[in-house]
């Protein structure tokens, strides 16, 4: 990544968060990873106290999003990110257990950039995350709109 990109990880399961982080690191990605275990904390971080998203202006963000959160659905977060003028250009990777085709379709319709189903088999899981890490290391991420 050409400029410091912050990875925002919204994942309620701490075990999953840890496994994802480890595997991303193993693929050689050393960017800062900010983790949130619930939707509200993540929203406050992304949109700021005023909810406008102005706080993230100029920052390059990559968002890793789980759909099943204790306090809200990931889809709501996705929608708000894609409707916000500062954040809508930031890539959103949905990483969740659901492989329901309706759900996948809905996410892409709302503007998610990548949808990955967490494989239950750990080897596949680790492999997928590592490949995602490799993907992170080559993609261009725009800064939040100025």
């Amino acid at each position: 990544m050409t400029q410091p990109v912050t990875i925002v990880m919204i994942e309620d399961d701490e075990g999953h968060a840890r496994l994802i982080e480890r595997n991303i690191r193993r693929s050689g990605v050393n960017n800062e990873i900010v983790a949130f275990a619930n939707g509200n904390d993540a929203m406050r971080h992304l949109f700021g106290a005023d909810g406008s998203g102005l706080v993230q202006k100029g920052n390059a963000l990559l968002i890793l999003l789980d759909l099943n959160l204790p306090d809200m659905t990931g889809i709501d977060i996705l929608k708000q990110i894609k409707e916000n003028k500062y954040l809508k250009a930031s890539p959103v990777v949905v990483l969740t257990t659901t492989d329901d085709s309706q759900e996948i379709k809905r996410c892409y319709e709302f503007g998610c950039n990548v949808y990955i189903t967490k494989p239950v088999n750990y080897e596949n899981f680790a492999n997928a995350i590592r490949q995602l890490g490799l993907f992170f290391s080559v993609i261009q991420v725009p800064p939040a709109a100025t």
């Binding site: 399961d13 999953h16 496994l19 099943n68 257990t97 967490k118 239950v120 750990y122 899981f125 680790a126």
Partner: peptide, 9 residues
């Protein structure tokens, strides 16, 4: 499935 991923991982 979610805890299963952890156990497996």
């Amino acid at each position: 499935r979610s805890p299963l991923v952890n156990i497996m991982g």
